[in-house]
Structures are given as C-alpha cells and as structure tokens.
Amino acid sequence: MDASLTNYLLIGAVMFVSGVVCMATKRNGIAVLMGVELVLNGANVNFVAFSRHTSLGLDGQIVSLFVIVLAAAEAAVALAIALNFYNNYQTIDVDRGDKLQG
C-alpha cells in the first residue's frame, strides 16, 4: 500500500515541477496558464492519493472537486486577461510586456 502512495505522490510531484518549470520558462501566455493548470492538478493527484491511502478520507476527494472548479474559474479569468493583453499588445508573448520595470 505504501508503495502505491509514494508512486502517486511522485506523479503529483512531477506534475507540480513541470508546471512550475512551464510557468517560469514559457514565453507564450497560454503555455504559462497551462503550467498553472499542471500545478493545480498535481496537487489534485496528491489529494486523491492521500484520500485513498491515509485517514484523510473523503475530505481529499471533496477538496479536489473544489479545486477543479476553481481551476476552471481561474483559467477563464486568466484567459480573459490574456485576451485583453493581446488586444493591447498584439502578441501573447509575456516577455513583450516590458513597459513596467518591475
């Protein structure tokens, strides 16, 4: 049983890390948002795995349901903002947004 938990956690971790790498390195705004989705879903995998193998019980699965809904809402908002950015800059390349020095 423990081995299975570790495997699932590993998958979750791989998804998390690839999501973070995606967010950090991709220039295309949509790809960055894909990275965000990967991270959130990595966490979801964790939750469901813990729900099965530990005393977390149903809480884990309920949480992942909520997270799916929330990820969808966030993605919708993020895409709307990306669209707005495209309307203003005619590109979705995040590096091209350099008017602000921050």
């Binding site: 965000v36 966030e74 707005n84 950015f85 947004g97 602000l100 921050g102």
Partner: peptide
C-alpha cells in the same frame, strides 16, 4: 499598462496559489 500589469499579476498569483 493595465493589461500588462494584470497579466503579470495573474501569472504570479496563479503560480503562488498553485
């Protein structure tokens, strides 16, 4: 500037939330 700021904010924010 607003659209750029919003994009940067959403990317950072979503990342941090993740």
């Amino acid at each position: 500037l607003s659209s750029e700021a919003a994009l940067k904010y959403v990317v950072y924010g979503a990342g941090a939330a993740g």
